[in-house]
Design a binder for these strands. Structure first.
Length: 652
RNA sequence: GCCGGAGUAGCGUAGUGGUAGCGCAACCCCUUGGUAAGGGGUAGGUCGUGAGUUCGAUUCUCACCUCCGGCACCA
């Protein structure tokens, strides 16, 4: 039997040789380092015999696959440890995930944080035992019966959902065994000691909230202690960027239990960021053909019955307010109002596309457990717009929307995102309007638009809006949670439910497509993201305080005030006009004032002493620590004006 | 909403069945200093809210509120 290695070398063995033996034949070093093998492109246990000529590659810790393998084996050992310590606990599933692994258990008494060290110690013990792994292939039904007999009902259910007649593989680590696709290391000792159990959580069986809740234990696992330490250090660093923490430190926003969960209070510093983003959108979108509108925040029930939002989202809306016998709802989205504006006049084919934009204030009764800082709130403002267009314009309009996104993101240096095209699962009719032909057409329009822009995207089935396919721009918060920073849909329903039409060349009424788009998403989430993205060190155009004047002694306070007034009065065409400046008049020494400004991440510090006062200059220090030296005040104003107006950052 | 954890001054934290300390910030005084913390002092807390147990609760119990970690949800 011939085994071909990656370098093309062919070796002859007797039938039934294992990859472990092959590795040993190559060299003792490789045999020791070997974790698993890859046989004809498929993962293969070291101890699993080969029965045919094959191409084979040995995978060691150095290979990229190693981490996933370590984590998967660690998950098994976690399950072993838990079942040794807590007899009667049922096992379910335990995959490797990004940075680690988890295992879901069914047990009546919950795990406590105190259990984690105990379980971890037991895991180390099991790994030290260096238990050998064994693989067996069983008929499905035998495995089902076997796990039922053991009282492992979840496992039995899992196996029972595998097609009848198929065989399943079981893995033994010593006496303990589990259904598993494999592969696994030859012994538990190969996992090493670079792992740690991190948290306990509830998780629904099979991801369905109608099912019982299991108890999930999360862990992280790495090749060696250094990688583990690096990972833990990375987590600490990321926590420092958490927008909730920076939001507090820099006084950007706050929440009050007296106001309500998920209802943010924007402090003066944070409001600056919101407003600058809004100015950006007003300016940029006016150029892009949008017209701005303003609509109310409370609306009669009938409108949401008509839009079908009550049908699909009633539980996620604030309860209605009864006004003289009629129900009014806080608006959860802006589209119906924009549709009303569209309907207020007749529309010719000549005037489409019509683009109506609004910073709409919306309220959604998000599930309490889902609220998270500014990322997930119950009251928010969207950079929203609805584009009403003809079918033949939909493609181009969608492309245009995608390009607008790209402009915004490029401006802010946002590169770490991906796009997700969400299509319906047409089998689930209760989640999506039942118009298969329209779905296909709309899906194609978006897909083609995505292809034309060339931006990479993934497709997700079953995640569309009820009225049309959508494209989400996905980002990750610093703590690793994934969010849609922008969500856009192509809506073919509104023309039917609202009778939105235009008069064509033929004089007849035709349906319109509606594109829902929000490149900057909600101000709340977008700002949260920017805080983390910039770690609080905003570019000058967004910085709540752009310039801190630092008088060296109070002899120059008058001059400091003159400098401030000059900056206040500088005509900046963007945003609020006039620069955002303050003076540190505290009795501290200059060093302390600089440190304070630095900690507040203010882009520019203007140090003024008697020399500067005498010469009409300012000594410019950047947030980066760079000292630009003294320059005439007018020169500094010209520099920062240009920086604010072009929205480029020159302070680092 | 579900599972688990937590809530002490503006922020970060210590602590106890006998009504609370520390650091930073704030305020005052001295210092008027040239690019990341000068020195001294003062003030600030109904220990998340409500009820219960107790001679006595911030500490123990329960409920609620809010937050944190997950799950589910996300127009």
């Amino acid at each position: 039997m011939i085994v071909t290695l990656p370098d093309g070398k062919a070796m002859t063995f007797t039938r039934g040789v294992t990859p472990g033996e092959v590795a040993a034949a190559i060299g003792p070093g490789l045999a020791k380092a070997a974790l698993i093998a890859e046989v004809d492109g498929k993962p293969w246990d070291l101890f699993r015999p080969l029965d045919h000529d094959a191409k084979m590659r040995i995978i060691t810790k150095k290979d990229p696959e190693a981490l996933e393998l370590i984590r998967h084996d660690a998950a098994h050992v976690l399950a072993m440890a838990v079942q040794e310590l807590f007899p009667g606990t049922q096992v379910t599933i335990g995959p490797a995930i990004e940075d680690g692994f988890y295992y879901d258990f069914a047990r009546d008494t919950p795990f406590t944080p105190d259990d984690l060290p105990k379980i971890e110690a037991k895991m180390r013990e099991i790994i030290k035992r260096d238990l050998p792994t064994r693989r067996e292939v069983w008929p499905r039904d035998k495995a089902v019966q076997h796990f039922k007999d053991m009282g492992e009902n979840y496992k039995a259910e899992l196996i029972a959902s595998i097609p009848a007649g198929e065989d399943v593989s079981l893995y033994w680590h010593g006496d303990w065994h589990d259904l598993c696709r494999g592969p696994h290391f030859a012994t538990t000792g190969k996992i090493g000691d670079a792992f740690k159990l991190t948290k306990i959580a509830g998780a629904y069986w099979r991801g369905d909230s109608n099912n019982p809740q299991l108890q999930r234990i999360y862990g992280t696992a790495w090749r060696d202690q250094k990688e583990l330490a690096d990972y833990l250090h990375r987590l600490e660093e990321q926590e420092k960027r958490d927008h909730r923490r920076i939001g507090k430190d820099l006084e950007l926003f706050t929440f009050s239990p007296d106001v309500g969960a998920g209802l943010p209070l924007w402090m003066p510093n944070g409001t600056v960021i919101r407003q600058e983003l809004e100015f950006l959108a007003v300016q940029e979108e006016r150029r892009d053909g949008y017209q701005r509108v303003v609509t109310p925040e409370i609306t009669k029930e009938a409108l949401y019955i008509r839009s079908r939002h009550l049908l699909y989202y009633k539980d996620d809306m604030y309860s209605p307010i009864d006004i003289e016998g009629e129900n009014y709802y806080l608006k959860p989205m802006n589209c119906p109002h924009h549709h009303m504006i569209y309907l207020a006049t007749r529309h010719s084919y000549r005037e489409l596309p019509l683009r109506l934009a609004e910073y709409g204030h919306c309220y959604r009764y998000e599930a309490s457990g889902g609220l998270s800082g500014l990322m997930r709130v119950r009251g928010f403002s969207q950079n929203d717009a609805h584009i009403y267009c003809r079918e033949d314009q939909a493609h181009q309009e969608f492309v245009r929307v995608m390009r607008l996104h790209a402009r915004y993101y490029e401006m802010m240096g946002i590169t770490d995102y991906y796009m997700r095209l969400s299509l319906p699962d047409l089998a689930k009719k209760h989640n999506f309007v039942d118009e298969p032909a329209e779905w296909r057409k709309a899906g194609e329009i978006i897909r083609n638009a995505m292809k034309e822009t060339g931006y990479p995207y993934v497709e997700a089935e079953g995640e569309a809006a009820f009225y049309g396919p959508k494209v989400d721009f996905m980002i990750k918060s610093v703590i690793g949670t994934e969010y849609a920073i922008s969500t856009n849909q192509l809506d073919f329903m509104a023309t039917k439910t609202f009778g939105l039409t235009y008069i064509g060349e033929d004089g007849a009424e035709h349906p319109v497509y509606v594109i829902h788009r929000a490149p900057l998403g909600s101000h709340e989430r977008f700002t949260a993201f920017l805080i983390e993205h910039y770690a609080g060190a905003f570019p000058t155009w967004l910085a709540p305080i752009q310039v801190r004047i630092v008088p060296i002694s109070d002899k120059v306070n008058d001059y400091a005030h003159k400098v401030r007034d000059a900056l206040f009065n500088a005509p900046v065409v963007n945003g609020t006009a006039g620069l955002r400046v303050d003076i540190d008049l505290s009795a501290e020494r200059m060093q302390k004032k600089i440190r304070d400004a630095q900690l507040q991440k203010i882009p520019y510090m203007l140090v003024v002493g008697e020399r500067e006062a005498a010469e009409g200059k300012v000594a410019v220090r950047l947030r980066s620590g760079k000292d630009l030296g003294a320059m005439p005040l007018e020169q500094f104003i010209a520099r920062i004006r240009q920086e604010a107006e072009t929205r480029r950052d020159m302070a680092d």
